[in-house]
C-alpha cells in the first residue's frame, strides 16, 4: 500500500518538476554545453567554428605566438583585461557598498509611509534602458559635461577633467548602474534590524563606532554579502557600460569576448574566455555560500 503510494508520489514529483527541467536543459545546460564544446574547436576562416578538436583557444588565452619569429610569450593584454575586470568589479562592489549603506540606512529609518516612495526612487533607473542610463552618465562626466561645468563654475578646477574613456569613467558608470542591487538587499536586512538592539548596545557602553562594527554590521551582514554578489557578478561580465564609457581601449572581459565573436573571428577563444569568466563568477558564488552559511552557524 504505502510503497505504491510512495511510487506515485515520486512519479508526480517528476511530472511536476518537468517544466523546470525542460527550462534548465534548454536555457542553461544546453547553451553552456555548446560554449564548452566550441572552446575546444578550431576557428573558421570568416566566423563560426570548424569541427577540428584542439586546445589552441586555451593556449591563446594565456600565451601569444609572435607572427615574425614564432616565439611564445605571455599574452599580457589578455591578463591585463582580466585583471582590470576583476579590479573594477571589486571597486564597484566597494563603492556601491560605501554609498549604498547610508542610503539603505536612510530609507529603512524613514517613517513607514515614506519608505515605498524612497524605494521607488532608488529603483526608477531600473525601469530605464541601460544604454540610455549610460549615455546619461556620459552627459555628466564628458569633457564639457555637467560635472566639469559645475567644477569650473565654482572654481575648484581650472581646466576640465578628462574622465571619459578611463577606468574612472567605467567605475563611475558601473557604480551608478549597480547601486540599486546593493541598496535593496541591505535595506531588507536593515529593515529587519531591531532598533532596540542599537539602544541596548549603546546602553552597554558601546561607542557609536562599536555599535556599527559590533552590532549593525554583523546583523546586516547577510544583506551586505547578497548585495556584494548581486553587484560583483554582473559587474565582471559588464558589456554596455565599459563599451560606452571606456571606449575601445579600456576593455573589460565582456567586451573582449564580444570582440572574439565579432571582428576577431575567433569563436573558440571567445568561448574559452566565457568559461573562464564563468569560473570567476562561480568562485564568487562559492565564497558567498561559504560565508552566508557560516553566519548561520556561528553568527
Amino acid at each position: 500500500m504505502s510503497t505504491s503510494l510512495e511510487k506515485q508520489r515520486a512519479r508526480d514529483g517528476w511530472l511536476l518538476s518537468a517544466p523546470a527541467l525542460v527550462l534548465l536543459v534548454f536555457a542553461a545546460a544546453g547553451p553552456l554545453l555548446i560554449v564548452a564544446t566550441y572552446a575546444f574547436l578550431t576557428p573558421g576562416d570568416y566566423s563560426g567554428v570548424v569541427w577540428d578538436f584542439t586546445l589552441k583557444a586555451w593556449f591563446q588565452v594565456l600565451f601569444e605566438r609572435d607572427i615574425f619569429d614564432d616565439s611564445i610569450s605571455m599574452a599580457d593584454a589578455h591578463l591585463s583585461i582580466f585583471w582590470r575586470s576583476i579590479r573594477l568589479s571589486l571597486l564597484t562592489t566597494i563603492l556601491t557598498f560605501l554609498f549604498g549603506l547610508p542610503t539603505a540606512w536612510f530609507i529603512a529609518t524613514r517613517p513607514a509611509k515614506q519608505r515605498a516612495a524612497w524605494l521607488f526612487l532608488i529603483t526608477i533607473p531600473f525601469w530605464t534602458n541601460l544604454l540610455i542610463r549610460t549615455f546619461a552618465i556620459m552627459e555628466v562626466i564628458r569633457y564639457d559635461g555637467l560635472l566639469n561645468k559645475a567644477l569650473l563654475g565654482i572654481g575648484l578646477i581650472e581646466t576640465p577633467l578628462r574622465i571619459m574613456y578611463t577606468d574612472t569613467a567605467v567605475l563611475i558608470g558601473m557604480t551608478y548602474v549597480y547601486l540599486p542591487l546593493m541598496v535593496l538587499p541591505m535595506f531588507a536586512a536593515i529593515d529587519r534590524l531591531d532598533i532596540r538592539l542599537i539602544e541596548a548596545s549603546y546602553d552597554l557602553y558601546a561607542t557609536r563606532l562599536k555599535v556599527l562594527t559590533k552590532i549593525i554590521l554583523p546583523i546586516v551582514r547577510p544583506g551586505i554579502i547578497a548585495g556584494s554578489i548581486l553587484v560583483f557578478v554582473p559587474s565582471i561580465g559588464a558589456y554596455v557600460t565599459p563599451r560606452v564609457l571606456g571606449g575601445g581601449k579600456k576593455m573589460m572581459v565582456g567586451n573582449f569576448i564580444e570582440l572574439q565573436f565579432g571582428a576577431g573571428r575567433n569563436w573558440p577563444l571567445g568561448a574559452a574566455l566565457s568559461l573562464i569568466l564563468l569560473l570567476i563568477v562561480s568562485v564568487a558564488l562559492i565564497f558567498y555560500v561559504r560565508v552566508s552559511t557560516r553566519s548561520d552557524s556561528d553568527g
Binding site: D194, R196, E199, A200, S201, I215, P218, G299
Partner: peptide, 9 residues
Amino acid sequence: FQNYALFPH
C-alpha cells in the same frame, strides 16, 4: 528591555 533586546548574533 521589555522585549529583552538580546543580541541575536
